[in-house]
Nucleic acid binder design. Structure first.
Length: 263
DNA sequence: AAGCCAGTCAACCGCAGGGGT
DNA sequence: GACCCCTGCGGTTGACTGGCT
């Protein structure tokens, strides 16, 4: 059995599109549309391309109503939140973002956001976190209702929320990513947390379960324990201000006596 | 200056599912 | 109901690029 190929692989060109091909495809679709048939479109447009390739090129790149370039913090937060709910439903997630393609969202997740989660996963809280109470919205950012993590029963310090990158940028000079991101369980050896975790493991700083703090926030409904920080790092970070307020952030001092000293 | 490596992103592949016959 | 065609989707690959050694 098996399916017949959608096009003759010998006869069609593959690989990157030339500007001429882009122009030919754009011109044809602008004049005729796709006529609901991508398979026959390449012939009509004079392109030696597979119909699927034409469709992909148009949908992911040439279409005028799509946006390329860096994702905003808010888009990141939405992606993380929706991924935690839906999994890899990229088309559904992309539909919630203005003018983004599923391919863009998928690439962004695989190249950036997934790494952040991997780094976070190597930073599991030392204290088991209690089940969160019902979601409590505490500010009016449009996407915040998806993202807010509710206060927990353990001693916490509520701060402004940061994205991972913003958070790291806000850290005091002595608190580099290497010292801020520690894996409490790793015994000095890096778990699979990407370069950040690896550098943390090699930095040799004395991350202590007694003084450490786990920071949770930025979306994902508990999915996303973002950082483990020393209390000194946290004290500096927690007082910083940030325009990119994307959701609630809660610090979980592993030593409850620290909570008062951190505010 | 050259080589290596990691990150990024465009593009391809194959499968699933819907619609038409 | 079975089959075929086509589109849409998600996973994966590979070319390219910039930074680092």
């Amino acid at each position: 059995m098996g399916r017949t190929p959608c096009c003759d692989r010998e006869a069609v060109k593959r690989g990157p599109w030339s500007p001429e091909e882009d122009d030919a495809l754009r011109d044809y679709i602008n004049r005729h549309g796709t006529a609901g048939n991508w398979i026959s479109l390449p012939n009509k447009a004079g392109l030696r391309r597979c119909g699927k390739s034409c469709r992909l090129r148009w949908l992911n790149y040439l279409r005028p109503d799509i946006r390329h370039g860096a994702f905003t913090d808010e888009e990141d937060a939405i992606i993380i939140s929706l991924y935690s709910k839906l999994g890899s439903k990229w088309s559904t997630i992309a539909a919630q973002l203005e003018r983004r393609t599923d391919n863009d969202v998928k690439n962004h997740w695989n190249t950036k956001l997934k790494r952040r989660l991997a780094a976070a996963a190597a930073c599991t809280p030392l204290l088991p976190l209690p089940a969160p109470p019902p979601l409590a919205a505490t500010h009016t950012s449009p996407s915040s209702s998806l993202l807010l993590l509710p206060p927990l029963a353990v001693p916490t310090v509520k701060t402004e929320a940061y994205t991972c990158d913003d958070f790291l940028q806000q850290l005091p000079p002595t608190a580099t990513a290497a010292t801020a991101l520690r894996d409490p369980f790793a015994d000095g050896a890096a778990t699979d947390g990407g370069s950040t975790s690896a550098s943390a493991a090699s930095s040799g700083s004395n991350w202590s379960a007694d003084t450490g703090v786990v920071v949770v926030g930025g979306g994902g409904g508990g999915l996303f324990p973002e950082f483990c920080m020393s209390s000194d790092d946290l004290a500096g970070a927690a007082t910083a201000e940030d325009d990119h307020f994307i959701g609630g952030g809660y610090y979980y001092p592993l030593d409850p006596s620290l909570s008062s000293s951190l505010v």
